[in-house]
């Protein structure tokens, strides 16, 4: 068996780059971003601009000072910045996106070794961080807040799905987030099973153990479930690399979301659920490794 080839395969040039991938993610966010500006006004645009520019700046400055290769060109900081803005309410004061971005990029991403090495999703961690720090400055209201006090919201389920509601600026339109998701699936950037299983798990648990049947659809379309399922649970770095592992991740995140919403202290639960699963990604990979085609010829491979 000629297992080893002398002169390095592959020979043909590859078009794949991180930048192209991230550019696809940015493109996929455009519908939801436009909707945010249309619905919440220019302030939404300001939030995005602030967090994107802070994120990019932080990454560039950190890498420059640490004498590393400056990687802002790969657009991943832009994506993180956009996600941070997406997770904030329009009332957020200007310094909130700035703080969130600094924390996300410097502490969560760069300190762990930069792109690819961070354990937690930087954007989610950044948003959770500022929510904890500046709770009083970040009013939050969505269908979930109404349901929490046992009332049905004033708008219809249709409004909730389309995004004619309140909430963080990027999360309101489940429909447009889905459009972005379909684009990413079509471009093979994300694995379709992840958002489907994530939302599916929450839906299934809600149907099996309903709090109130009238709530179910509101619960699905409100809060950051779609944002998380389409964009956060599919982040390459902080989720498993195997197909099976990703499915496990999605189901786990969905189940945790349900539990937190139902019994936990957080209205939404999605961010915490994903961050919790982030910690397990490496372990899931270890367990969910595919069986090798060869039965371990010449290796100590056990399984």
């Amino acid at each position: 068996m000629n297992a080893i080839k002398a002169d390095g395969a592959p020979f043909i040039k590859s078009p794949e780059t991180v930048r192209a991938m991230m550019a696809d993610v940015v493109t996929a966010m455009i519908p939801a971003a436009v909707w945010a500006v249309w619905r919440f006004g220019a302030k939404a645009l300001l939030l995005m601009a602030l967090s994107v520019s802070t994120s990019v700046l932080c990454e560039g400055v950190f890498e420059y000072i640490a004498k590393k290769r400056v990687t802002v060109g790969d657009l991943s900081a832009v994506v993180t910045g956009m996600f941070i803005a997406f997770g904030l309410p329009v009332e957020a004061p200007w310094y909130v996106p700035v703080f969130a971005s600094v924390f996300a990029i410097i502490i969560v991403k760069c300190a762990f070794g930069g792109l690819g090495a961070n354990v937690f999703n930087p954007a989610l961690a950044g948003v959770v961080f500022v929510r904890l720090c500046f709770r009083s400055r970040l009013p939050y209201s969505s269908a979930l807040t109404a349901l929490a006090v046992g009332k049905l919201p004033e708008y219809s389920v249709y409004d909730a799905a389309v995004g004619l509601t309140d909430g963080a600026i990027g999360e309101v339109s489940a429909m447009l987030l889905t459009v972005g998701g379909l684009y990413l699936i079509a471009r093979s950037v994300i694995d379709w099973r992840v958002p489907v299983l994530f939302v599916g798990t929450v839906a299934a648990l809600s149907v099996l153990f309903p709090q109130n049947a009238a709530y179910i659809l509101y619960e699905l379309f409100s809060g950051s479930l779609f944002l998380g399922a389409v964009f956060m649970a599919t982040d390459p770095t902080t989720t498993p690399v195997t197909g099976v592992g990703r499915c496990v991740f999605a189901v786990g995140a969905g189940a945790l979301t349900y539990v937190m919403r139902r019994f936990g202290g957080d209205l939404d639960g999605v961010a915490y659920a994903i961050l919790a699963m982030n910690m397990l990604s490496g372990t899931i990979d270890r367990i969910a490794a595919p069986r090798q085609v060869r039965s371990g010829t010449g290796t100590e491979a056990g399984k």
Binding site: G116, P236, T237, V241, G243
Partner: peptide
């Protein structure tokens, strides 16, 4: 770059 972003493409 030569940096793994853990996208999993090599795995699939």
């Amino acid at each position: 770059a030569d940096v793994c972003i853990r996208c999993g493409r090599c795995v699939s």
